[in-house]
Design a protein around this nucleic acid. Structure first.
Lengths: 260, 260
DNA sequence: TGGCTCGGTTCAGTATATTGAACTAAGTTC
DNA sequence: GAACTTAGTTCAATATACTGAACCGAGCCA
């Protein structure tokens, strides 16, 4: 009975799978696409794409612009609102940092891990210019961000390997400091586990330093990550260590408040 | 050939339709559900729900909590980010109101119309307590909100009737001031078209007054709505009129900046 | 403890969703 | 302005996804 091929069981709800692919595609290119382009890009028959997109339009998952091209629709915002409302992560985050006045001058962010990327679900941008304003819904490559490394430090070596073994799995570096190998990443994650907090020193943006820590579920796996960001010139040794402790402590408190 | 029943063509991509229903359901109840509950609630066979949910979990559209119950997953945030990034509505909004310092003390919101509701896609909450903090992803019934009325004022009478003809179509009022009939609403929308801005005086929250205006596309149909909110005691006649003009002017400018 | 309820999972048969091919229409090029 | 390319749409035939029924297993109550 050899059938060990881990084929992705492509035999259930194909319409749904394809719809997901369409939405991912539209989300990754940053402009609308013609229906025929979508079909070509995904390698599905034109007629199938046609029917699928018609149904998706009916529900406003996608909308057709004035030029006839397809773009993401507002229904997606409704679901995102449901996700944010269902998890109390965001409200706990808001509440906690509303009370942490000594961090008021820093930019604080909350993300969830999504594949090889982190997605920002809450942001407190301080007045201080970092060369980057975090926004809800924004995505960045996990291995370069502080929140991403914090979350990756809680998954198993096997899972990590599955995510980042191949060079093609690696997102393009954002600065010349981007890590590039599984060994390097996994050594760094060891350090994260030892210290209790993660560091991104200029891997996302030149001149920006971020410290992150994971919020964990009952099993110890990361549910989300938080980070504090500052400009490089401010990131002196003692302050860095103090803030690292601070963010680790914040993550632990939030982990606890969420019942874990 | 009598087959005039506008049956919702339930013969295309049923898996997708059902997945949408599942996500809507999970988004509307504010807690996780057991798979069997979902099947019962939607009136679909248990086995179908099982297969569907398995596929949805594979893509992290939904996730299974520690108690085995199903909740919305983080993938939805990614799509929302795509939607927000694709439209420059949000960035134009941010940019415009960042420069409008005379409105700094007011709460300003941006919504899109989604069926009978508006969804908040950007919010500037002022310090002033309104008894309600607007949050991204939040939904409110369109006919009670200023942004909703502003957007409804741009659709045809026929469409309006299709949305709100039946009493059962009306969302539950949020305060004792909620409108309740199509006639009343449509008279109010006439006034909105005359004045150029819409008013919600205590229909969303007792003691809160909001003024809204529509951002339009090339055809004159609303693309989004913006509103300014204040507490009732502040909403004196002259100020109200000035702010109404201001928000209408802001909406027109944004309409123009978006190329319409 | 033993029976019962209810959630989750599996599987073969059939109702039906997908698709290849054919067609229209609109833009583009020479 | 005519030929060509390409997007959008339609439809019957068939490959296949959904379903009903049956099977586990855990929790609950008497």
């Amino acid at each position: 009975m050899p059938q060990p091929t881990k084929t992705v069981t492509a035999g259930a709800a194909p319409a749904l799978r394809r719809a997901i692919e369409v939405l991912d595609l539209l989300g990754s290119v940053h402009e609308p696409m013609a229906a025929a382009d979508i079909a070509r890009e995904l390698g599905i028959p034109k007629s199938s794409a046609h029917g699928l997109i018609a149904t998706m339009m009916e529900y406003e998952l996608v909308i057709r612009g004035v030029d006839g091209r397809i773009r993401l629709g507002p229904r997606l915002m409704r679901w995102a609102g449901g996700f944010l409302g269902q998890t109390n992560l965001v409200s706990e985050f808001e509440h906690y940092f509303a009370g942490a006045t000594e961090l008021d001058d820093y930019t604080i962010t909350l993300t969830v891990l999504e594949g090889r990327e982190v997605v920002y679900i809450a942001c407190h941008n301080s007045g201080q210019p970092l060369g980057l304003t975090f926004r809800i819904g924004m995505r960045l490559p996990a291995p370069y961000t502080a929140t991403g490394k914090a979350q990756l430090s809680t998954i198993s070596a096997g899972e990590l390997e599955r995510l980042f073994a191949e060079p093609k799995d690696w997102p393009a570096p954002l600065t010349h400091l981007g890590v590039g190998s599984l060994e390097q990443l996994s050594a760094e994650l060891d350090a994260v586990r030892r210290n209790g907090y993660s560091i991104d020193a200029g891997q996302v943006r030149e001149g920006m330093v971020c410290l992150g820590a994971p919020i964990k579920d009952h099993s110890g796996r990361a549910l989300a990550g938080i980070a504090v960001s500052m400009i490089r010139s401010e990131a002196t040794g003692p302050l860095l260590e103090a803030l690292g402790e601070r963010i680790r402590c914040a993550a632990d408190t939030l982990t606890h408040r969420l019942g874990n």
